[in-house]
Simulated scan of single mutants.
Amino acid sequence: MEVKLKRIYDDATKDDGVRILVDRVWPRGVSKEKANLDEWMKEIGPSKELRKWFNHEVDKFAIFKKKYEKELQSGAQKANYDQLKQMQKENKTITLLFGAKDETHNQAVVIKEMLEKHT
């Protein structure tokens, strides 16, 4: 059960497994066909308030991570997170897709770490 991360702007490959977009907002400039998605879990994304506060500012990432983990465990995102955990169990590989330019400071990184911690 491998969890991969990939920008949605990168080409799909056969070793991606199940491709899941974990952004609340559809990424600019990507058609639904080009995205080649199996699932769009927009409700798993950070709350609007948290997303706007974080604003992809690296120095806020540690606090963002703590707040977002809390949302995934007890907020409106919990149902989607639980569904994602089930998908992880049922598939050899899942790839979490995101639109952010920063590949190390985004919500997909937080989700991946949580999934790997709880398996």
Score class of each variant (00 low, 15 high):
Asn36His: 13
Asn36Thr: 10
Asn36Met: 14
Asn36Gln: 15
Asn36Gly: 13
Leu37Ala: 09
Trp40Ile: 10
Trp40Thr: 04
Lys42Ile: 08
Lys42Thr: 10
Lys42Leu: 06
Glu43His: 11
Glu43Gln: 12
Glu43Lys: 13
Ile44Thr: 03
Ile44Ser: 02
Gly45Leu: 09
Pro46Glu: 06
Ser47Ala: 11
Ser47Lys: 05
Ser47Gly: 06
Lys48Glu: 13
Lys48Ser: 14
Glu49Cys: 09
Leu50Gln: 02
Leu50Arg: 03
Leu50Phe: 06
Arg51Ala: 09
Arg51Asn: 11
Lys52Cys: 05
Phe54Met: 01
Phe54Ser: 00
Asn55Cys: 11
Asn55Val: 04
His56Val: 09
Val58Arg: 15
Val58Pro: 12
Asp59Ile: 07
Asp59Leu: 12
Asp59Cys: 10
Lys60Gly: 05
Lys60Cys: 03
Lys60Thr: 04
Lys60Val: 05
Phe61His: 04
Phe61Asp: 03
Phe61Tyr: 10
Phe61Met: 06
Ile63Met: 11
Ile63Ala: 08
Ile63Asn: 07
Phe64Cys: 01
Phe64Leu: 02
Phe64Gly: 00
Phe64Thr: 02
Lys65Cys: 03
Lys65Ala: 04
Lys65Val: 07
Lys66Phe: 06
Lys67Phe: 08
Lys67Arg: 13
Tyr68Trp: 07
Tyr68Arg: 01
Glu69Asn: 05
Glu69Cys: 02
Lys70Met: 09
Lys70Ala: 12
Glu71Arg: 07
Glu71Met: 07
Leu72Val: 05
Leu72Ala: 00
Ser74Trp: 03
Ser74Gly: 12
Ser74His: 08
Gly75Thr: 01
Gly75Cys: 03
